[in-house]
């Protein structure tokens, strides 16, 4: 009886010890969550109801005003338009390209590893440097204009950053260049899990390559496609640094996406001094709620993709 009691207390003791050690090992991250994640959210949720520009005597409660102003803020909604345009331009170029390259590399050609490494390489370059490189290449006196006039495609150079459409096109190209390799690797990984026999029997029955692609390959990698598409949508919604570095909104703030617009308007070092931070908080809240809704709608709509097989 006594023996089991000491055993029990020792077990209890070791349990508390374990708990203490677990919390000790997680301590920085738990503190970090409270101080760096949770507190700023409450902070923003509070100040969204105030006029607040860091000058104490200007601070006043304004109620719904910040939120109402967002709906009147045409620059903010133009940034939404730009973001959607960016997504609609980029994703249909990037994903089919990545898919095509994955299918081609999956033919087990010589040098598959080298090509895979080359396609992924742009992704390791800092997005800020990507922006610099592309704004240099597409400069009026840059290499792209130089090559296009040399080969007679253009008679004279184009001012790529003077027109919102061509400026956005440069951002789309830079962004696609930077990420197509990652998507190709996701697709390639999925393709390699498709059993060889499926193809064999299809070809035995005389199926054409296109039929095989649409009837076997595509349905088999549908679950990965769902994830890749989610990541692509998420990536385009959050595009930020690239826009700030490549065009910085040029011309006239017309190429700002939502995230870069918020940075440009409210974040120190980018924004003007003494902006209404309360308004920025309201805008950040509205934006993240809308992003959440997009995410939920997407996962509802795309559910079928993951359930094909």
């Amino acid at each position: 009886m006594e023996l089991t009691n000491t055993k029990k207390s020792r077990q209890l003791n070791s349990k508390t010890k374990m708990t203490l050690q677990c919390y000790l090992m997680l301590s920085t991250q738990i503190i970090g969550f409270i101080v760096l994640t949770a507190y700023p959210i409450f902070w923003a949720a509070k100040w969204a109801w105030f006029y607040f520009d860091n000058i104490p005597q200007n601070t006043r409660f304004v109620g719904w005003e910040n939120f109402i102003n967002i709906f009147k803020d045409s620059a903010y909604w133009r940034a939404w338009g730009t973001t959607l345009k960016f997504a609609v331009c980029k994703i249909p170029i990037e994903l089919p390209l990545a898919m095509l390259l994955a299918v081609l590399l999956n033919r087990r050609i010589k040098g598959q590893g080298a090509f895979r490494a080359i396609f992924y390489m742009p992704h390791i370059v800092s997005v800020a440097i990507v922006g610099l490189i592309f704004s240099n290449m597409f400069d009026y006196f840059g290499v792209i204009n130089g090559l296009l006039t040399k080969f007679g495609v253009l008679t004279e150079g184009v001012n790529w950053f003077d027109n919102p459409n061509t400026a956005l096109m440069v951002i789309v190209l830079a962004s696609t260049w930077s990420t197509f390799g990652t998507n190709m690797i996701y697709f390639l990984g999925a393709l390699q899990t498709i059993p060889e026999e499926l193809y064999e029997s299809a070809y035995l029955e005389g199926a054409k390559p296109f039929t095989v692609f649409f009837k076997i390959t595509l349905p088999m990698i549908a679950p990965i496609l769902q994830t890749v598409l989610l990541l692509a949508i998420n990536g385009t919604l959050h595009i930020n640094d690239l826009v700030l570095v490549t065009t910085n909104g040029a011309p006239g703030g017309k190429t700002f996406t939502v995230m870069s617009y918020i940075v440009k308007q409210f974040v120190p070092g980018f924004a003007e001094a003494n902006v209404n931070i309360g308004y920025g908080c309201a805008m950040a809240l509205i934006t993240s709620v809308m992003y959440c809704i997009i995410g939920i709608v997407y996962s509802k709509l795309s559910k079928r993709l993951s359930e094909i097989y």
Partner: peptide, 9 residues
């Protein structure tokens, strides 16, 4: 909430 949270930081 994105970069707006740099203020509380």
């Amino acid at each position: 909430l994105g970069t707006i949270t740099v203020y509380p930081l």
